[in-house]
Computed example of a mutant assay.
Amino acid sequence: MRHNDPVAAVTPEVIAWRHEIHANPELGFREHETARFVAGQLRSFGLEVHEGIGGTGVVGVLRSGSGPRAIGLRAELDALPVTERTGLTYASKTDGVMHACGHDGHSAMLLGAAKLLSQSPDFDGTVYFLFQPAEENEGGSMRMIEDGLFRRFPVETVYAVHNWPGLAFGTIATRVGPQMAAVDNFELRFSGTGAHVAMPHLGDDPILAAGAFIGAVQRIVSRAVDPQVPLVVSLTQIHGGNVGNIVPGEVWLQGTCRFFDPALSDTCERLIGEIAEGIAAAHGVTSRLDYKRGYPPLINTAGAVAVAAQAAGAAVGSEQVSTAFSPSLGCEDFAYMIGAAGGAYAWIGAGAVGPGEGLHGDRYVFNDGIVPIVLRYWTSLVETALPKAPAA
């Protein structure tokens, strides 16, 4: 704790904001009260505020000096459909909804950065504080972009952070290139003719076709794609039949593909369809594939990563900054903002976790110890990206 340290002074308030948001979680595109809370705080700091962008998105605008340059800092507003089992005094008051990913912390910390920068604007240019709805599965950042986000608030780069359980506490990790994966989802139906189990010759058996598909689809990863290229193909649901002595007429499967190379989206769709059709033909049934392209890979741009790493080093020390690490096959819709404007995404190490305590777990607890780390990072980033001209 530094003497007369503004970050230390505001940290308890930021933690209190987080606890307030945590106790009142809202799902994607329904973050009405959270958005009102964020907008109210931004106005209390003297910022220009715009609401209702992309649904429930909020943008705060802070200008300093006369420079024309501008950057965006982003946080998420939404919670998850998870029943909380943390036992916290500030646990969710909404049944079946929980901030199980840390978006409450991300929003509170970005509010804290806005307050600090408004009190001591040691930069030249404009900072847009971007609070987006519906990061979890519904593409809220794309909705904001479609609603004119970067036309109304033009930026040269955008930045975001995410708390990262399992990464050494206090580490700030950002890398050039992919840091998070693309995700595509698919649904597949095998349809035939049901029959009594005592007379299977009178019908087809979609269950046999589905079983064959489950094994065969893994040839995409093991035989159709270079083994040095990351790819996951997983089946996550299978449903068929509801009576113990009837072979069903239809089986439904759901699955997902994750990868860093955008070209693999076309590859996966084509091969899944070909494998399903071949197996269906061999079993005398039909197949129908519904392949849905989801978030693209999150690919950090080199210039923004250089700025982020420099700012992180100034905030926490170079020994706490990592730029060489393996990316995650998790996904993140900040990919749309980086794709539109360029930028850098950083993980903030939250330390070790136990079972059920990681991201999206029902016993997940955001580590409030990272709050001052992120506040220092955000303020350092703004001052690094938008430096004042040296005195004559």
Rank of each mutant, 00 (worst) to 15 (best):
P12N: 07
V14H: 07
E20V: 12
I21W: 00
I21K: 03
H22S: 01
E26D: 03
E31W: 00
T34A: 12
F37I: 07
G40F: 14
G55K: 09
I71W: 02
L73K: 01
A75M: 11
D78F: 00
T86R: 06
L111R: 03
A113R: 01
L116Y: 01
Q119G: 15
S120G: 14
P133Q: 01
G139C: 09
M144E: 05
D147V: 05
R151K: 14
R151T: 14
E156D: 04
V158G: 00
Y159C: 09
G166W: 03
T171R: 10
V176Y: 06
Q179G: 15
A181L: 08
A182Q: 08
V183D: 13
E187R: 07
F190H: 06
G194S: 14
H196Q: 15
H196M: 13
P200A: 05
H201T: 13
D204C: 14
I207V: 15
L208G: 01
A210V: 09
S222H: 11
A224N: 13
Q237C: 05
Q237W: 09
G241V: 00
G241T: 02
G244S: 11
V247N: 03
R270F: 06
L271A: 13
E277I: 10
G278E: 07
A282D: 10
S287T: 12
K292L: 11
Y295L: 07
A302H: 03
Q310I: 08
A311G: 10
V316W: 01
S322P: 00
A324H: 11
S328K: 02
L329Q: 08
D333F: 12
M337Q: 07
I338Y: 06
A341W: 15
G351R: 08
P355Y: 15
D368A: 10
V371K: 08
V374P: 03
E383N: 13
E383I: 13
T384V: 05
K388I: 04
K388A: 07
A392I: 10
